[in-house]
Every structure is written in C-alpha cells, then in structure tokens.
Amino acid sequence: MSNPLTLLLDTLLPGDAARWPAAGAQGLAPRMQDQARDLPGGNAALRAVLDHLPDDFAARDQMAREAVLRGIETALPHAFDTVVTAAYNAYYTDPAIRDVVAARTGFANHPPQPQGFELPPFDAARLAQVRARPPLWRPER
C-alpha cells in the first residue's frame, strides 16, 4: 500500500492513463520532500497537510481524495500552496517527466544553455505598415 506522501502526490498530479505519469507512481516522493525543504516553511507545510489526511485516504478514489484536499486547501491555504509548489517543482524538474513534456509539446529537453534555440533574423520588411505612419510622439513645446 502506498505511503501518504505518494498518495498525496498522485492526487495532486494524477497524470492521465495514456500519456502523463502520476507523480507518486513516478517515485517522486523523496524529490518532493527535498523541494519542500527548500521552500520557506516547506517542511512544516508538508507535515501539516499530511497530518490533515484522514486515515482512510488511501481507500478513497481520486475524486474523493481531491475533495479531501480541497478541504485542506480551504483550511490551510498557505501551507497547501507551498505543498503544491513543492509537488510541481519535483514533477517538472524530473528528467522522465521532461521527456514527456518534450514528446507532448515539442519542447527540447535540454537546459536552455548552451544550445539555445534558432530563430530567423528579424525581417525589417514586416514594418512597412508602421513606417508609413506619421510621428506618434509629442515634441517638447
């Protein structure tokens, strides 16, 4: 049976069956704990949210688990927000998830540098319509 943190992650980021992995099933619980630790008040926030999970959380289906979390979100908005940030941080910096991002969106799964991206040079002919306008600025009197 999954531990509460894994279940929490799977509820926050359940993915979808066909394409996106669920965060907990992806094994991101330790990474999320690390991320929570790096956020101001993150450890306490995670503890507070986990403490609010009911004993039968694991036995509920996704919709019922989301309902539980919405209640916690209302009761502990700041802590919950921090936990969601930690979960997203863990998910979207995971190399396997970045592979999915790349496959689904065309995003190049490499750091922005040193490769960067190629774009065609600016084409000044694009400005023909604007250039035809009279001055739009007011001179000093």
């Binding site: 926050l12 980021l13 394409r19 989301e66 979390l69 979960a87 997203y88 941080n89 970045r98 991002v101």
Partner: peptide, 23 residues
C-alpha cells in the same frame, strides 16, 4: 515560460492540481 513556471502560473494563476492538471 518554461514547463515548471508555466505550471506554477507564469504571469497569472497557478494551473489547477488534480485531474484537470495535465490537460
């Protein structure tokens, strides 16, 4: 913006968590 910043809302609201998130 990048994937994580997009999920966290970029210039606006954070994307929803839960089943609606991936879409």
């Amino acid at each position: 913006q990048g994937p994580l910043t997009t999920a966290l809302g970029g210039y606006g609201l954070r994307l929803p968590w839960g089943e609606a998130h991936a879409a």
